[in-house]
Amino acid sequence: MTVAAVAQGTAISVAMDMTEGIISRFRTMSISRASVLTGHVVGSLIQTMIAMVIVVAVALLIGFRTGATPLEWLAAIGVIAMIAFAVIWLSVALGLVSKTVESASNLPMPLTLLPFLGSGFVPTDSMPTGLRWFAEYQPFTPVMETLRGLLTGSEIGNSGLLTAAWSVGIAFLSYLWARKLYNRDPAAR
């Protein structure tokens, strides 16, 4: 949920840049075209990781205990970074496709709701059939299962591989979409 919340801010920031004219100024400067979008992604990824440190600190303060080894903690950080990178690229594309800042704030909203429709709060086995099918095949369920397995010692199964596949797929397609939207004619906006 933290990853999706930061991604919403990224979409808003990108939409603001596109609608307030700063991008037009950047286009006239001799800077790499990729640097503008990459700057948003790197900044948001740093912001996400800081937010995750705060979430983990609060969890530990209120009583969460884990038997995870340093290697498992490192893997958990990697999983969070992977999915954050993918979702941030998606939010950059959503910010670019938005006509207004207000619409950019609404487009990533379903990402915030996806963890509720996954295995984050209840096991998928306890869900009605249609919801269970959706929960088992959406991108956040394998992420949550992988993190749960790494931090609590439960079985991961193929969740790690699915997490990597979802992350790479979302990041790659979102990057291509964002690049296409960014390189289009500014008058087409």
Rank of each mutant, 00 (worst) to 15 (best):
K99A: 15
G153T: 06
G21I: 07
G21Y: 07
P115G: 11
V41D: 01
R33D: 09
G9N: 09
T48K: 14
L114K: 03
G78L: 09
F85G: 03
T129A: 09
N183T: 09
V36D: 07
M16T: 10
L173T: 10
P70E: 12
S24K: 13
F140A: 01
S30N: 15
F140G: 01
V41M: 11
V97N: 03
A84L: 07
A81V: 10
V122T: 09
M52S: 10
I88P: 00
R184W: 10
P186D: 14
F121S: 08
T2S: 13
T129E: 10
V79G: 02
T38C: 08
E145N: 05
T163R: 02
D125T: 15
A5E: 06
P142Y: 05
L71R: 10
F172P: 02
I50H: 11
S154Y: 09
V53S: 12
A75V: 08
V56E: 00
R148I: 01
G43T: 08
I83P: 00
K180I: 02
I54Y: 00
L96N: 00
L181S: 07
S91L: 04
A57L: 01
Y175F: 15
P123W: 10
L147K: 00
I23T: 14
F172A: 13
A187F: 12
G118M: 05
D185L: 14
V97L: 13
G120K: 04
M82F: 13
L71G: 05
A7R: 07
S174L: 04
L161K: 03
P186K: 13
R189P: 01
A75I: 06
S126N: 10
S30W: 11
S167C: 06
